[in-house]
Amino acid sequence: MTRRRVVAVGAGALAVAGLGGGALAVDAAAGERTPGPHERPEDCYVLTSETVEGPYYIDADKIRRDVTEDREGIPLLLSLKVIDSDTCRPIRNAAVDIWHCDAAGVYSGYEDMGNGGGGGPAPTGEPPTDAPTGPPPGGGGGGHQEPTDDTRYLRGTWRTDRHGQVSFKTVFPGWYRGRCVHIHTKVHVDGEWTDTGYEGGHTCHTGQFFFDEESVVATESVEPYASNTAERTLLTEDTIYDQSGATGGLLKLRYDKRDISRGVRATLTVGIDPATTNDGQGTPPQPSTSASPSAT
């Protein structure tokens, strides 16, 4: 099993934090309801698509639900339900990571990389695509690159509850040349939650969440998205999204169609196989050395 440790931010960082307040004008209830004993929802039996990790993952993100920090943008409440795709049972006490770019298309920890054109610092190399075709720059599979700075906005890790649910408060992502609008995620199981964070275990899912074109177009007239002049890749043109809807990570969105700036609620059931290891480094999923107790 791979070894990882996530460091908590300050005393009491593992305590449950509220997601209310602010400009978020959407329902803050987390996730979807748990299936009844005689229900067999179709999405329980479908593995959510695995994807590459991408170049901008940092394996020491903050233990927090609110990852916004000082980033401006449309409030987004991301509510996920993590289940075993074979048994439909919720995966409790899993560590879920999310990370994504800001409205200008810039990733924290990599501000020197720019956003591929427009709305942010000038890029120093080839535009990021999260889908490298040659040897990965900086070493590591999936095109991983070492951080260039100490910023960590729009990144965080939180634990799933007994229903397999976890929520994050963030902002609607922006875009950069070569990729459609998306959020990265990892799910870790078999580790241990301690007073200082999450230790051990293995990564059983590496994926991405996507936004439909209607919602993205709606953000284009709202600042600071309106100032992002980078060429935008459509959902149907993306090289990572497999066009399979929710199975491929397409989020279910709720927002005021007259004014998206009031906030967006995004939900999705994520079907995983807790007994496999998939770190997004371009290798096929591998069976874990032990069954996950989180699935019981």
Rank of each mutant, 00 (worst) to 15 (best):
V67Y: 01
G73V: 13
I63V: 12
I83W: 00
E126N: 14
A94L: 09
P90D: 10
I74W: 13
E126Y: 14
I63M: 14
D84F: 05
I91V: 10
V96C: 09
D112L: 12
P123G: 05
D97F: 12
G120I: 03
T124D: 07
D112M: 03
E69V: 15
K81P: 00
E111W: 00
I63H: 05
P75N: 01
E69G: 14
G120V: 04
G120F: 01
V67T: 14
S79D: 09
Y110F: 13
L76E: 04
T87F: 04
G119V: 07
V82I: 14
W99I: 07
D86Q: 14
G105H: 02
K81W: 03
T87L: 12
I74N: 01
H100L: 14
I98A: 06
P75G: 00
V106I: 07
S108E: 02
A95N: 05
W99H: 11
G116I: 05
T68P: 06
D97E: 12
T124N: 11
G117E: 10
I63N: 05
G125W: 10
I83C: 12
T68F: 03
I74D: 03
M113F: 12
V96M: 10
T68D: 06
R92K: 14
G119Q: 01
M113C: 09
P121C: 10
I74V: 14
E126Q: 14
D70W: 04
D102P: 06
V67S: 04
I74Y: 09
Y107V: 03
Y110I: 02
R71I: 12
S85N: 15
I83Y: 06
C88M: 13
H100I: 13
V82C: 10
R89L: 07
G73Q: 08
G119E: 08
G118A: 06
R64K: 14
D66Q: 13
N93G: 05
R65P: 12
E69F: 14
Y110Q: 00
V82F: 06
P121R: 14
A95L: 13
G120N: 10
Y110W: 10
P121A: 13
G125M: 09
S85L: 01
T124F: 06
G119D: 01
V106H: 04
E111R: 09
A94Y: 02
R65G: 12
I63K: 12
E126A: 15
L76I: 15
A94H: 03
G125K: 11
A95G: 04
A94V: 09
R65C: 11
D102K: 04
Y107A: 01
G117D: 07
E69R: 15
I98N: 06
E111A: 07
G114E: 11
R64I: 10
E111C: 04
R89I: 01
R89H: 10
G117V: 07
I98D: 02
R71L: 11
G125S: 13
P75A: 00
N115M: 08
G119N: 03
I83P: 08
G125A: 13
A95M: 08
N93Q: 09
N115R: 07
L80N: 11
G73R: 06
I91G: 03
E72S: 15
G114S: 11
D70V: 15
G109P: 04
P121N: 13
D70Y: 05
S108V: 05
V96L: 13
L78D: 02
Y107C: 00
R71A: 14
R65Q: 14
C88A: 15
P121D: 07
G117P: 08
G105Q: 05
L80F: 06
G116R: 03
G105D: 09
L80H: 07
Y110P: 02
Y110S: 02
V96F: 02
R64E: 09
